[in-house]
Write a protein that binds this DNA or RNA. Sequence first.
DNA 1: GAACTCATGTAAGGGGTTACATGATTAA
DNA 2: TTAATCATGTAACCCCTTACATGAGTTC
Lengths: 203, 203
Amino acid sequence: MARKAALKMSILGLLSIRPMSGYEVRKHFLRALSPFWAAPLTQIYPTLRALKRAGLIKGRTVVQAGRPNKRVFSLSRQGRRELTRWLASPIAMPSMHHEFLHKVFLMNLLDPEKALVNVKDYLRCTEHWLGNLLTIQRKMQPALKGPFRETVEYQLLSLEHLIHIAQTEVAGAKATLDHLPRLHGQATKAPPSRGAAAPFLTW
Amino acid sequence: MARKAALKMSILGLLSIRPMSGYEVRKHFLRALSPFWAAPLTQIYPTLRALKRAGLIKGRTVVQAGRPNKRVFSLSRQGRRELTRWLASPIAMPSMHHEFLHKVFLMNLLDPEKALVNVKDYLRCTEHWLGNLLTIQRKMQPALKGPFRETVEYQLLSLEHLIHIAQTEVAGAKATLDHLPRLHGQATKAPPSRGAAAPFLTW
DNA sequence: GAACTCATGTAAGGGGTTACATGATTAA
DNA sequence: TTAATCATGTAACCCCTTACATGAGTTC
């Protein structure tokens, strides 16, 4: 139920902020929530239908001129109750696929020049991501003085955390870049752990 | 291929350090690699068989007295080549399910006392996790002076990054705890975004 | 005697990824 | 005229999760 709940609750969560269409839900996942809130994008429409069947959301069709019509969904009272119940359940530890971590772990197997290219590229990506988050933060800041202040305060709090996570990634990429030249040149020796058992702990 | 590759490469990666049994692979995933290197644990044995069929690993049975026999797997030359090719491919951005982030984002919907309990619990979990990582680091430190120094250096580098990630989580939980009492008492007012559209950006 | 470690599995069902499909409008 | 935005989908296959199964030895 863990995975299953994730998408449902993500959608209910977005709808709790304001009613929106499947397209908008998808857009938010793509633009801001990824990569730290992964969601199966093609499952959004089917899940919305399922949520409606289950009575957790209400849908109404909005006729638009010059654009395709859309179906705007909003939380039902039951949906809001479900969401709140989920929020009250214990917070699970994050689970992730962190390729950077994985690849640094084994980087001694790789030609240092190729490693350098990949890590530089990763640094660029994370910096870009961090930049986006900071822009969003700047844009959201003024809303603290508007209505819905409480809501915004928590959103900014989680955004801040996300920014710290992004900064950690940037710092990690930089640290790896610093280490690479030091190990360069020594690494051209014959690969050490060829078949033989390495004596150290592998944590 | 992204997800599928993840488990295969995780296993090949562990076997690149030293030959080991399926049980040991599983143990490493459980003890140290989770939660930031999630793996489908029940798929380990089937995947090992698949890897053997594909010629990427070699297996030999080790007869043990007083314990069940085990099959120890090691990388074949082909397996090492596959692993290196994967290492040379661009580093994907991490993708994760971060329930803490998700729940802080929507915390205004939750009774502050319940929120407090959950966040405290999360803080305890992350601190425990951080403690484990620091212990592993202390244990690995001496291996820097042994053989396989290069290998250990990269393992420690990725471990350091993982520690920074864990510290970020701990700090995030603490920051949330600091914010909760400030918002307490104000939150008992009627829920603000009931049906009506909120005017702010939802990033 | 209970609980844990070592050691290896199976089976069903649900969830997610990849790839494909359509079609109108607007900005570069 | 090419690309992007708005808007909503389908289908197949693969992967993963959950739950279960076994059994000997060791530690408390």
